[in-house]
Design a protein around this nucleic acid. Structure first.
Length: 265
DNA sequence: ATGGTAGGTATCCTA
């Protein structure tokens, strides 16, 4: 069985119905993981996503901010959420997928503008959530398990994951302290960066472009903030990975584009 | 160096 799993920060699900339809036409993902749905669960557009072919849905959202959801053509098991840093943000959905896979859909805090946890509580929250996740994965690691960790991690770890490594070293999303926190989480689960397995680290690769650019494509000042990681036992199933750059040019776009992997199970 | 845009909400927050 081949499973296509896609992650996409939609920046409001209510505004993206036409783009979700276009994504389904373009990629036909079997599992579509969303972040920044910005809607409470009882108002989630279940009918709309069912019309797009996703019969199985787990939404974990809140009003106006954050919110994650998993839409699937295949059955989901044991849907649940996790709460971190004793803050009630909807940032983490977990579901079981066929083949004994456990999927973690994450929306890591963006972290504000100032990269100093003493002065900026949003940056402190970002580092704290990453640290708590790392500790959790260290404690629960079992290399026989099939895990997918994906989502908007709001960090571009490699020099080629940003348009200018030197100019972004003190910009939140690419600071050394964030990259170290993300590395610790990756090592905690032994996770393989699926997209960089397929697309070499020498190649510039972005999944987000600011809305504020006059011409996002011409300036191309992007960052790779969206990731798909696989646990060691699942990594051999990786068959393909891609970033749908063209989606940034679709009408009324999200500032993020979909990132996908194909798994042969 | 600064400000630029988008989305949700209810007048300013977050990204």
């Amino acid at each position: 069985m081949r499973l296509r799993v896609t992650t996409w920060n939609v920046n409001s699900i209510r505004l993206r119905e036409p783009l979700l339809a276009r994504l389904v036409e373009t990629l036909r993902p079997d599992v579509l993981c969303l972040q920044e749905t910005k809607i409470e669960d009882d108002r989630f557009p279940y009918d709309m996503v069912r019309r797009l072919g996703f019969e199985h849905v787990y939404a974990h959202g809140q009003k106006a901010y954050h919110g994650v959801a998993v839409l699937a053509r295949v059955p989901l098991s044991e849907p649940r959420s996790m709460r971190w840093c004793e803050i009630d943000h909807a940032r983490h959905a977990i579901v079981g997928l066929p083949g004994g896979i456990e999927l973690h859909n994450l929306y890591i805090p963006a972290g504000g503008d100032l990269p100093d946890p003493e002065l900026n509580p949003k940056f402190a929250h970002k580092l704290d959530m990453l640290a708590e996740l790392a500790t959790w994965h260290e404690a629960h690691r079992d290399d026989r398990r099939h895990l997918i960790l994906l989502g908007d991690l709001n960090i571009a770890p490699l020099p080629t994951d940003v348009w200018s490594h030197t100019q972004l070293l003190d910009v939140v999303s690419h600071t050394p302290v964030e990259v170290a926190a993300l590395d610790r989480l990756q090592r905690a689960g032994g996770f393989v960066d699926a997209v960089r397995t397929v697309i070499p680290a020498e190649q510039k690769l972005y999944s987000w472009w600011s809305y504020r650019a006059r011409d996002w494509a011409a300036s191309d000042r992007g960052r790779r903030l969206d990731h798909v990681w696989l646990s060691p036992a699942l990594a051999p199933a990786l068959a393909a990975a891609s970033v749908l750059r063209e989606a940034r040019g679709w009408p009324q776009p999200s500032d993020h584009v979909p990132v996908s992997v194909d798994l042969d199970l």
